[in-house]
Amino acid sequence: MTPRELRALCLSFNAAVEDFPFNPETSVFKVQGKMFALVNLDARPLTVNLKCDPDDAVRLRTEHEGLIVPGWHMNKRHWNTVTADGGLPDRLVRELVEDSYDLVVAGLPRADRLRLDRP
């Protein structure tokens, strides 16, 4: 997956926005003010921090050793750092980004979820 494709994917979700709260190099993708992806689109290798169900996080780290690792500078229980431009299939990266978005949306108040058309 290229940086351009990753950025487009993150912005394709309903109400997703890109923000730069830390520095001009680090894109933070949010929904309703809550982060679901954090990435430096110029970094090589291209890695992205994504929220993940804790049980799935451990399984994914085991299945994709070295390509999916505990979230760098994040809560290691709930976040993974995923190498997006390497050995992982683009389909899996897309699913992980979508799962991250869905987990964040699931934690929003019901009224916000309904505005996003996500029950």
Rank of each mutant, 00 (worst) to 15 (best):
V28R: 07
A8K: 10
R44Y: 13
R91G: 14
A106I: 09
L116H: 10
G107K: 14
D112K: 15
R4V: 14
E63N: 08
D55L: 14
P24S: 10
L11V: 03
A84D: 05
L96A: 10
K51R: 12
K30F: 02
A43Q: 15
L11S: 01
R115S: 15
P45H: 09
A84Y: 02
L38D: 02
E25G: 10
G71Q: 11
F22C: 02
P24M: 03
L50Y: 05
T26Q: 09
L103R: 12
L38F: 06
F20I: 04
M74A: 08
M74W: 08
S100A: 13
D117M: 13
V93A: 02
L92N: 09
N40R: 15
A84H: 01
A111S: 15
P89W: 06
F13W: 00
K30H: 04
G107V: 11
L41G: 06
L11F: 01
K30P: 00
V48A: 07
V39H: 00
L108S: 00
L96D: 06
T2N: 13
G33F: 00
D42W: 02
L11H: 02
E65D: 14
T47F: 10
V104D: 08
Q32F: 03
L11P: 02
R94G: 14
P45I: 10
V48F: 03
F36H: 01
D85W: 08
L11W: 00
N49F: 06
R91S: 15
C10R: 00
S27T: 10
T47V: 14
V58E: 14
P89L: 11
L108N: 05
F29C: 01
P45C: 08
P70D: 06
L38I: 12
L38W: 03
A43N: 03
R113D: 07
A15F: 01
C10N: 04
K51I: 10
R77M: 12
D90P: 13
D85M: 09
L103K: 07
N75G: 09
P119A: 08
P89A: 14
A111M: 10
G71D: 12
R118D: 07
W79D: 07
L96I: 06
N14R: 15
N40C: 08
W72N: 13
L116F: 10
T47N: 11
D42G: 12
T62P: 01
P24E: 14
G33A: 01
G107C: 07
V28I: 12
A43S: 12
N23H: 05
L6A: 02
G107Q: 10
F13V: 04
H64F: 15
A8R: 11
E25K: 13
N23K: 06
R115I: 07
P21W: 05
Y101W: 13
L41P: 11
R59Q: 14
V31L: 01
R110D: 10
L67E: 15
R110A: 12
